[in-house]
Design a protein around this nucleic acid. Structure first.
Lengths: 342, 342
DNA sequence: CAACCGTTTGGTAGCGCTGTCAATAATTCT
DNA sequence: AGAATTATTGACAGCGCTACCAAACGGTTG
């Protein structure tokens, strides 16, 4: 027959309880809801735990309580600077809380996202942060039936699964184009890579603004499914120039492309912004210190991550945010690269 | 007295076993070591699991088996591009394996690292990946007593806790300086930010090479504890020029600083590489496509992460790597920014 | 003084799985 | 063929914690 599995010096809740002179369940409560204890016992358990160096066994807790203290995060890429900032925000917000993060990379595939979602939810996460609003129908219905807080990040849309924080990529791109138009640029090219849903919506914003100004021209648009890079920015910009040599400005869907375009201009001895204006997207740190400084659309990525995590925490705390959909907005940073020196 | 906690439609291992007509423990074995089952039962359990959509309860597994399938990763920064690449390698290597990743940010503090280490180890991780070789003495002894595979990444040194993968930052910096010397540069400045232990060792390499060449001069060195950025690169480079206006080259401890220095040169209309050579470190993607292209020291960050994770996996598999210390090396990428056009 | 109420504490069982050992079936060996 | 292995399978208990219910306690009230 089976034996007693001995666990030699390990400190369990029982040990703490014994030292504190209370029952295990009371000790347990101390770690979950100290308020529920009388002041005396609270102090006794606290000092006992400290003395023994007790660390709760999360697996046992999860098994007994049927829930975990893990917040699942689904993002499409680990490479992208944008998500690095978002993640930093999430980690910072959860730092010091009892929740930890389980990260998974959907690689821009909503099918993979769905699979990861099922995996996550099977472990009963405390909360969930997912990227974007384009999930598979199955993903959506799974998320709707699950009863943990869910925040969709990066963009906003009409029907949140639960909560949502982001900004309008359409409006942001439109604003960038408006800025270029206001500066007197007319033949404004579009450079896009990866073309995920959010980039697609930036293209829509570009198209809308250009059409409205009566300046839309398909030849001004160069896109690719290849992941973005600075090098690619140079290549795409060269393609664009080949297709439309008369352009006087280019809007890039991210800053890497913009930097690549800038370098390509330098290589061709094209003056920026005199002969060519450049506007990027995201406003990464380097945009403000390049030569010339590069215009971009600032998006509040760190805040997005931070707030998303805080929205989850608040909901778990029973203090559900009054506004389930938060528009973090954007701002067009007008710098040298798109400012006509009149 | 306590009641039966009913769990309505939930699919447990028992259900799968029942459907498959085997005992629960046999079904359990199917998920952990299918080879151990006879072909018939294996197929029966497999189809039963699929039919019921069974997903194992990881908390129960962890509690019963006294170990988790989590690999802890301790890195000093989430912002730094370098770690993004390393992480990507780790995630890629673990993708498809049954292990998941628990990430924590030490914020370049070895005290915080020690605290996080204790937290991690209390949950009995399957493996551990930690950054660098400068842990607190307590951290070291904790790691030495624990019996899971541990890989130290980013650099190599004489006494691994367990395994190690990285390269010599000293040699890498030395090689960069040798390259500049070979190109005929003599007054070579040093730009350093953050100054974590690895950056410190790059400074040591610089100092060694310069001293050996009889060219060492304290005025050539500008460092700060501030986290790195492109903007900071410009600022530090300006500081350096103020201290030592006669420099003809600058070695930057990372590529962001190098890019910042390049922009600052442009702003001052200093010709690169004719009046000023620039060499960076890490060889981020943009270095090869800037104008001029920027020299750098290529480090194999993705491979480092990937291999580190694979070393953990192999050890867990019982196939311990023959070589516990892996030197991934580096290569000096000689580009326009440091090539005298004779 | 009994009845009542809210707060604090404890007893019991069980969360879903696997470690250990033993039993049985299938093979191989002498 | 019988013994000795080896490959499969199963029984049982328990991993460390918490949900649920009940009891004890302290204070009021009529």
């Amino acid at each position: 027959m089976a034996r007693k599995r001995i666990t030699p010096g390990k400190i369990r809740l029982t040990e703490v309880a014994k030292l504190a002179g209370v029952s295990p369940i009371t000790a347990s409560r101390f770690f979950r809801n100290p308020e529920a204890l009388s002041v005396g016992k609270r102090a006794r358990v606290e000092s006992a735990a400290k003395e023994l160096g007790y660390v709760p066994n999360l697996a046992a807790r999860a098994l007994a309580s049927q829930r975990t203290e893990v917040i699942g995060v689904l993002i499409p890429s680990l490479t992208n600077n944008v998500f690095a900032d978002v993640l930093r925000g999430i980690y910072d917000a959860l730092d010091g809380s009892r929740y930890s993060i389980q990260l998974a990379n959907t690689r821009y595939s909503i099918l993979l996202e769905e699979r990861l979602l099922r995996l996550f939810l099977a472990q009963k996460p405390a909360g969930l942060i997912v990227t974007g609003i384009n999930q598979t129908p199955d993903s959506r219905s799974i998320m709707e039936t699950v009863d943990c807080p869910i925040v969709q990040i990066m963009e906003i849309g009409p029907s949140p699964v639960d909560m949502m924080i982001g900004f309008s990529h359409f409006d942001a791109a439109k604003a960038a184009i408006s800025h270029l138009l206001a500066q007197g640029y007319r033949r404004i090219g579009f450079l896009g890579a990866r073309m995920d849903p959010r980039v697609q919506r930036r293209l829509d914003g570009y198209r809308f603004a250009m059409t409205e100004a009566g300046l839309f021209d398909l030849r001004l648009i160069v896109t690719t499914a290849i992941p973005t890079s600075v090098t690619l920015g140079g290549t795409l910009f060269a393609d664009l120039l080949a297709k439309a040599p008369d352009i006087d400005a280019v809007f890039c869907v991210n800053d890497d492309l913009a930097l690549g375009a800038l370098f390509e201009c330098k290589r061709r001895h094209m003056a920026v912004p005199e002969q060519m204006a450049i506007v990027g997207f995201n406003d990464l740190e380097f945009m403000a210190s390049s030569e010339p400084t590069l215009s971009s659309v600032r998006t509040n990525r760190y805040e997005m991550g931070r707030n998303a995590a805080m929205m989850v925490l608040e909901t778990l705390d029973g203090r559900r945010p009054t506004e389930p959909v938060v528009d973090l907005g954007f701002s067009v940073m007008e710098r040298q690269s798109s400012t006509r020196r009149n």
